[in-house]
């Protein structure tokens, strides 16, 4: 192809992408920048005062409550991601290597696109003290008092978050397993590897990046979810996410909320870094040779 044809193709490509780029600039990049600027402003009796102050950050970082709430959000994220990856992996494996069509995959994905609030509500109905589980257990005579621990607890929050995130985790796992061709697995088996060895020496190293990605994405989205813990977590279920959202709803303190949002983002980055380092340290990460 002539050089000017290549140039023309590039220009056309950029021109086609320009409207979306503009949209994302105005409604994503600039707002994120504004949020950052706001985090240095001050709020005094419902008026916003432009400033360059670290007060919001120091206020959050000097309160023990902030650490406790952040930790509780991170816990939600961690357990949700751990369960989602472990539970979705066998399903992803089945979809990639044992099925031809994509029907099963679509059936699972449909559940993700359609029912965020309904699922939160459904678990409340199921777990409540007059809910399905408790009344069934009482009718069976297994318990005499309803189990209060089921609802308004970290258990309820994490169960529901796992239920919400499973299809999303599965989607990420399926796309990372698609990179591990079935031929490699066949070859390893022909060479005498056991099921476990195939998993540890072929699948795990080759899909490692995707696995870590699936875990981290699930972690961030679950740790940042403020609706589930608010509705099902009870009094101890408070998280930084809920606190940030409260600042932006009723007559809250926007700059303080903005500062907490950036602290939460920074925490996610730190967790990601530590997580990858830990995997390296424990020698769970494969060497470089798999990722050329």
């Amino acid at each position: 192809m002539a050089a000017d044809a290549v140039d023309r193709k590039k220009i056309v490509g950029a021109a086609l992408a320009a409207p979306t780029f503009l949209f994302l600039l105005v409604f994503f990049l600039i707002p994120t920048g504004l949020l950052f600027v706001y985090s240095f402003w001050l709020a005094k009796s419902f008026a916003l005062i432009p400033a360059l102050s670290l007060d919001n950050y120091t206020r959050a970082l000097s309160s023990w409550g902030f650490y406790a709430l952040t930790l509780s959000g991170l816990k939600n994220g961690f357990w949700t991601a751990a369960f989602s990856v472990v539970l979705s992996f066998p399903a992803a494996y089945y979809i990639v290597y044992r099925t031809r069509g994509n029907l099963l995959f679509y059936i699972i994905l449909v559940s993700w696109f359609s029912s965020y609030l309904v699922r939160i509500y459904a678990w409340r109905v199921i777990l409540g003290s007059n809910g399905l589980i408790n009344t069934t257990l009482i009718q069976l005579g297994l318990i005499s008092q309803p189990l209060e621990i089921l609802l308004f607890s970290p258990f309820a929050t994490i169960l529901t978050l796992v239920h919400i995130m499973l299809p999303f985790t599965l989607l990420l796992l399926v796309s990372s397993l698609r990179d591990v061709k079935a031929e490699y697995i066949e070859a390893a088996k022909d060479l005498g590897a056991s099921q476990f060895e195939v998993f540890r020496k072929v699948i795990l190293p080759m899909s490692y990046k995707g696995l870590v990605g699936a875990f981290m994405f699930t972690f961030v989205l679950a740790a940042g979810d403020y609706v589930t813990p608010q509705f099902l977590g009870g009094r101890d279920g408070m998280t930084t996410g809920i606190m940030i959202s409260n600042q932006f709803r009723s007559s809250g303190n926007w700059p303080f909320g903005a500062a907490m949002a950036f602290l939460l983002l920074a925490t996610f980055l730190v967790v990601y870094f530590l997580f990858v380092q830990l995997l390296n340290l424990l020698k769970l990460a494969p060497g470089r040779r798999f990722h050329d």
């Binding site: 409604f27 994503f28 600039i30 707002p31 994120t32 504004l34 949020l35 706001y38 994405f217 961030v220 989205l221 740790a223 940042g224 979810d225 403020y226 996410g241 940030i244 959202s245 932006f248 926007w254 909320g257 903005a258 949002a261 983002l265």
Partner: peptide, 14 residues
């Protein structure tokens, strides 16, 4: 890739 919370509050500010 970001929790919806971040998009919501950034847009409110904009």
């Amino acid at each position: 890739g970001l929790p919806g919370l971040f998009l919501g509050i950034s847009l409110v500010i904009l």
